[in-house]
Amino acid sequence: MPREAEPSLNEKQFVLQALHDSVRLDGRELEQYRPLELTFGDQYGVADVTLGKTRVLAKASAELTVPYADRPLDGIFNIATELSPMTSPAFEVNRPTETEVLISRLLEKTVRRSGALDTESLCLVAGQKCWSIRVDVHVLSHDGNLIDAACFAVVAALRHFRKPDTSMEGGVLTVYTPAEREPVPLSWLHSPFCVTWSFFGEEGDVAVLDATWMEEQVRSGSCTISLNKHGEICQIAKLGGVPVEAVSLLQCTNVALVKAKDMSSKLDRWLAEDARRRDKGGLLAELSAENDRVPDM
């Protein structure tokens, strides 16, 4: 397995020294995110998130299956993470690296365990038919802070996604094609966002948001906090690393809340924009004889 080249000792020292003086290599403030961009695909449920040079694509899809025997009233919801060699030669196909396991665990805890998606609404016939919602997360380019970007992409994809409408009449389940009935959005309860702090130095006294890959290689610890805009923590993961004062962790959480609210309003705006773009005035507008062609004058 080709190893990622590590930064040299002097490089590390340079970055650390600069961070101690509150200077980041790309000129950002310590608590400033890189520009966050989101593009929706033509299909429902495709979200392409870029955070600086980090780029993550998430696609949600739905399928009719049989619910698990031990949970007959729940639908199925899965998040699959893929870090391919395309991101970096250090990632191999079919062999999950530590990073990949951690990302998928974090996404699972943030989105699935916090109950962001109402899985009971996915059940169609108890014990027999339910929707299985699956989100595939593909990391296209890795320049640090994969977790925040991936989480944003997953939430965006799920909120954008529309599943085919269904109806139950006299015990007969009908699934409508998009032409017959407009697909319906998922029953979404709250939108959690991950905010990752990176700590630097032996004392962990410099805390930085949205670290780049270079900064991630130099950092001595990190802490990912997932929150929604209502100020509810869905998950905190500081998995070892440099010891940090409990008080500063509390401050980090408060700043994270501001960032999560910020991301939440951004996502709402983009979703609204996309809805406006897709909304051509309903069925009536589609049936209209008018078209874009302008007669020659």
Binding site: R113, I233, I236, L239, G240, L249, N254
Partner: peptide, 12 residues
């Protein structure tokens, strides 16, 4: 704090 792991939903 060396490690802090919270896996449940709770008000800040």
């Amino acid at each position: 704090v060396v490690a802090l792991v919270c896996e449940s939903r709770v008000q800040i």
